[in-house]
Design a protein around this nucleic acid. Structure first.
Length: 430
RNA sequence: GCGGCUAUAGUUCAGCGGCAGAACGCCUGACUGUGGCUCAGGAUGUCGUGGGUUCGAUCCCCACUAGCCGCCCCA
């Protein structure tokens, strides 16, 4: 019989790494709360058409990376339905915004989520088929200020703060504006036309991109192509006046808040719904997956899936990549040390050891419980790895109520009355 | 989906067409209630899975699976 394994592109997270995941999530929740975001939890699967209409039929995500299946009809009268594991969470959040008529509140909605997403891609380090994203959306009717460049800048400033508080040093923020969807379509045509006489001088990938996806030519990393790319029309020149001034206002607000960024006129994102501001936080040391998070404004998404006008801006950060980055920065989780390790001497002391452990744990201490069958030497060995102090519980200690405690950091051994034990163990190690 | 590299002990990895190896970790003892250092001893395992070549395959060949790197694309 073949042994079962986690399926391709999925994996188990084990201690102590899970402690790092919890720290990241706790930090994100703490920062989001300071900016008055509330948590939203949407279903892990949705109607397939939500993603087809929201993310874009022609995107790679929708055309070849979704986990979709036909949910069978239970009765003759019931139609079967195509369902899909969510490949990203923005479409689900906007669907919920529409479904619950959150626009009718007249208030700006500030929502964050943390959870698994699914894409059927070739797995690589930092790219899994089930991956976790931490994201947030600011969305609402225009009267609530949802189109204001201040919202863009606030989200970016929040992200800079979040990365700082996570302990990620050396991040870079790249921002750009892709304009309205009309601007974008017009620029796409301009670029395609401009590439016609140039493409044959470029790399094979670019020759293909020039036809299939001209915007991607801007991302080319081949050194020989760079001079040609420099001569191509800039998207900034294709923007209408509103988009230009909006982008200028975003930059001005970032300057005022001293958030460092780079204007990157080549930054184009892969999802169809992005308009105006797009951005990406990157970090070296992630290989080809150098993006920690990405996002942008999506002023037409709600209407695109049948909702009211509800401009918004949001981002999604790859939690797996935050973990990799923090580990690379030597901020991975160390095995935890409990306050005390209780070593009963002899199996007859085991019941008394449990009673003592219960007493200490109820006092709020973290306690590891050994076993009376261990020789004391073995208990010391285990205790030294797991705990700051060892508490020895033998016949003498049980009878006298005076316990033997040794502090591993100082090597000092002392006798502590049971009534004072919890307080003694609560003291920080010397 | 395409191309390249890889798969051997719990972990990181050597290795060779003829008995399966090291380091670290683990277990036992020296030391009957005292860890870290030291010393002595011990167990590590379907050599990824299936087929082929061969007297004989962990090694060579093929397929599959998985991981890593790159491409596409993206968090």
């Amino acid at each position: 019989m073949t042994t079962l394994k986690a399926v391709r592109g999925t994996r188990d997270l084990l201690p102590p790494e899970t402690a790092l995941w919890n720290r990241i999530e706790a930090t994100a929740r703490r920062v989001f709360a300071r900016y008055n975001f509330g948590e939203i939890r949407t279903p892990v699967f949705e109607d397939t058409s939500l993603f087809a209409r929201g993310v874009g039929e022609e995107t790679d995500i929708v055309s070849k990376e979704m986990y979709s299946w036909e949910d069978r009809a239970r009765a003759q009268s019931e139609k079967s339905q195509s369902l899909t594991l969510r490949p990203e969470n923005t479409a689900g959040v906007v669907r919920a915004y529409i479904e619950h008529k959150l626009g009718e509140t007249g208030q700006l909605q500030k929502l964050y989520y943390i959870g698994p997403q699914f894409r059927r891609e070739r797995p690589q380090k930092g790219r899994y088929r089930q991956f976790s994203q931490i994201g947030a959306e600011v969305i609402g009717p225009p009267s609530a200020g949802s189109e204001s460049p201040l919202r863009d800048a606030e989200v970016l400033e929040m992200l800079a703060t979040l990365l700082d508080e996570l302990g990620i040093t050396g991040w870079q923020l790249h921002i750009n504006s892709v304009g309205s969807s009309a601007d974008r379509a017009r620029y796409n045509d301009t670029l395609r036309a401009a590439l016609v006489p140039l493409a044959h001088k470029m790399c094979a990938d670019c020759q293909r991109r020039a036809v299939t996806n001209p915007l991607r030519v801007l991302d080319c990393k081949v050194p020989e192509d760079q001079p040609i790319i420099e001569t191509l029309p800039k998207i900034a020149d294709a923007l209408d006046e509103d988009s230009k001034s909006h982008f200028a206002a975003v930059c001005a607000a970032l300057d005022a808040a001293s958030v460092l960024y780079t204007r990157n006129p080549r930054l184009v994102r892969g999802l169809d719904y992005y308009t105006r501001t797009t951005f990406e936080f990157t970090h070296g040391g992630l290989g080809a997956q150098n993006a920690l998070l990405g996002g942008g404004r999506y002023d037409g998404l709600s209407e695109g899936i049948g909702g009211p006008k509800a401009p918004g801006i949001g981002f999604a950060m790859g939690e797996d990549r935050l973990v990799l980055t923090l580990q690379a920065l030597n901020q991975g989780a160390a095995p935890p040390q409990v306050d005390a390790y209780i070593a009963p001497l002899g199996e007859s002391l085991n019941p008394a050891a449990l009673a003592l452990a219960r007493e200490l744990r109820r006092a709020g201490l973290s306690v590891e419980l050994g076993d009376g069958s261990f020789r004391l030497k073995k208990s010391f060995d285990a205790a030294d790895k797991a705990a700051r102090r060892i508490v020895i519980l033998g016949e003498d200690e049980l009878a006298s109520g005076i316990l033997t405690v040794k502090d591993f950091s100082t090597g000092i051994q002392s006798k502590v009355p049971r009534a004072e034990l919890a307080a003694h163990l609560a003291q920080p190690a010397a």
